[in-house]
Amino acid sequence: MNLSIDIQEREHHSIIFVQGEVDVYTAEQLKKSLIPLTEETENLVEVNLDGVRYMDSTGLGILIGAWKSAKKHHSHLKLVQLNNRLMRLFKVTGLDQMMDIHPIKQGGNQYENV
């Protein structure tokens, strides 16, 4: 149940690398790191989820909250390097239609049959 978060800040562009498991125990840690970045005006907040082995619905709730917060502050939330499991989660919940999400680039079929 470990989560590690690394933030790289550039001008109007923050990249946040999330590694480990995002669940009911670690979601608060993600929230504390991510939400303040989305509260900056006109900031591009890029969340790299390449290292996320598992994310439950609590983590999903935090990402939706971050998306809402970014919208409110005229910033933009971009989620990158989502694996099959995460892509499925966003597809099932209908969030893929409104959020800026990008699956892992390498590999074949990124969207499994649900």
Partner: peptide, 25 residues
Amino acid sequence: AGHEPGLYYRAETNTFHSIKTKGLL
């Protein structure tokens, strides 16, 4: 509304199908 897809079982063909829907949470 963004719910985990259910399943439909068609007895005639003895097959299962995912109930695919669109809709936001």
